[in-house]
């Protein structure tokens, strides 16, 4: 069985797209960059001036330990971009790049909350 020319072209385009996608997933520059642990550790020192590294919530300061990374990233970007309005958090988030937020998400995501 053979495909008509237009369909054959479509199938090739799909194959090509899949191939590029697979190649991208294998290449460092195409995949999302791995979070930088040293950067995450340094930046985290700013967070633990208020948030307990043990993951315990006290008063109005929430726990930020052990979150799924995508949730952490979304919340920090919301503060950075002004969709959430706490001025303390906006102040912290405003100077963070995407790479820095990813590093923080990986850092705190890897910590285990202490038993409460």
């Amino acid at each position: 069985m053979t495909l008509d020319a237009p369909y054959r072209g479509h199938a090739l385009r799909i194959l090509a797209t899949v191939a590029i996608g697979m190649a991208a997933a294998c290449l460092p520059h195409g995949a999302p960059r791995a979070a930088d642990p040293a950067l995450g550790a340094y930046l985290s020192s700013e967070c633990v001036a208020c948030h307990l590294a043990s993951g315990v919530r006290v008063g109005g300061i929430p726990a930020i330990v052990g979150w799924p990374q995508e949730q952490f990233v979304a919340v920090m970007k919301a503060y950075r971009d002004g969709h959430r309005d706490n001025p303390v958090m906006h102040n912290v988030a405003a100077r963070l790049t995407d790479e820095e937020i990813a590093a923080l998400a990986a850092h705190f995501g890897a910590l285990k909350p202490a038993p409460q």
């Binding site: 001036a49 208020c50 307990l52 008063g59 109005g60 300061i61």
Partner: peptide, 17 residues
């Protein structure tokens, strides 16, 4: 009121730090 709750939480955080 929320700001005061932050204040109390901050104290716990910074003294632990």
């Amino acid at each position: 009121k929320q700001t005061q709750a932050e204040n109390m939480g901050w104290y716990a955080g910074i003294t632990a730090d």
